[in-house]
């Protein structure tokens, strides 16, 4: 029997981490929708963001770290689009997957120059608040604020603005969108920048929750799996997938640990495979995805 305080703590932490997974997964999702490719550079971008934030915030405080890493990530998104995605338009998706793998190595190299792969914590003073059974720290609040703002902003942009519907149109049918006079090329650039920005926010929150270390990209690859748990075609689905990943990870660690040592980090993938087998379009996705 699991005690209430353990359960409450695990649910809350799973939720905080789930938001991070969701935001990082959205970065993958955005690129998938406009370029039909898996962006393997995204995990390296998370790593870069972590180290940029660390180096900048040591000198100038965490706010500066946030701003600079947002700028760096947006720039990285822009560069990736101009140098990789654009020249490869019309080529089979595997070409872009391969190219982003190349970018993965390059960004790793750049990150090494920036941060020398040290392990450190972002300089943020922790204060603890007690809410009944639940203990909350500054880290929790800041990372919830950062990811929450990112998710909310993205959902609003996507669903409520003209730019959002234009991007959706491009994602649906780029040629058709061009036929209606939409600036497809610019919208694609914008999407890559957006993916960079979500990566920056997610990476920053991740750096708070997991500290900055040379294997931050590992969490991003985990988040990649979240992007499909609930269906690829709606932002809500990706968010649900991220939250599910975070929660399942924590709960499984508590419940299944006596029988399967160290199952926590892997359990989500059993679910993922099961979902893909039973409902390939995700838990809440619409059924018209590409499949035979």
């Amino acid at each position: 029997m699991v005690e209430a305080n353990i359960l409450v703590g695990a649910l809350f932490q799973g939720f905080v981490l789930g938001l991070i997974y969701a935001l990082i997964a959205l970065g993958f999702n955005i690129i998938y929708r406009v370029s039909k490719s898996i962006n393997f550079a995204h995990p390296a971008l998370i790593l870069l963001v972590g180290y940029v934030a660390l180096v900048v915030s040591r000198q100038n405080g965490i706010a500066a770290g946030l701003i600079i890493s947002l700028a760096v990530a947006a720039l990285a998104g822009l560069v990736l689009e101009k140098s990789l995605a654009k020249p490869l338009i019309g080529k089979p998706p595997v070409a872009l997957i391969g190219a982003t793998l190349g970018a993965f190595y390059v960004i790793r190299g750049v990150t090494f120059i920036v941060g020398r792969f040290e392990a450190a914590a972002l300089p943020l003073q922790s204060t603890y608040y007690s809410l009944g059974l639940l203990k909350v720290s500054t880290n929790d609040l800041v990372s919830m604020a950062v990811t929450g703002a990112g998710l909310l902003g993205l959902i609003l942009l996507h669903n409520k603005t003209r730019i959002g519907s234009a991007i959706r149109a491009v994602a649906e049918d780029a040629e058709g969108a061009a036929g209606y006079g939409l600036p497809v090329s610019r919208l694609m650039t914008l999407s890559w920048i957006l993916a960079g920005l979500t990566g920056a926010l997610g990476g920053l929150a991740l750096s708070l929750k997991a500290q900055v270390n040379p294997y931050l990209d590992f969490y991003a690859i985990k988040a990649f799996a979240a992007s499909i748990l609930a269906g690829l075609d709606s932002i809500g689905g990706v968010v649900l997938g991220g939250l599910a990943l975070g929660l399942v990870e924590q709960l499984a660690s508590i419940v299944l640990e006596p029988y399967l040592p160290g199952i926590g980090g892997h359990i989500a993938f059993f679910f993922l495979l099961l979902i893909l087998l039973v409902k390939p379009y995700g838990l809440f996705g619409t059924e018209r995805i590409e499949r035979i």
Binding site: N5, I6, G9, A10, Q13, G14, V16, L17, S137, N139, D140, L206, L208, K209, A210, Y215, F218, Y219, G246, E249, Q250, S253, I254, E257, P261, G262, G264, G265
Partner: peptide, 20 residues
């Protein structure tokens, strides 16, 4: 109690809650 080598605050807190 299991505490992953690649841990987040969530993992560390869960592990600590289990021993508190």
């Amino acid at each position: 109690v299991d505490l992953p080598l690649k841990a987040t605050e969530a993992d560390a807190e869960r592990a600590v809650l289990q021993i508190v």
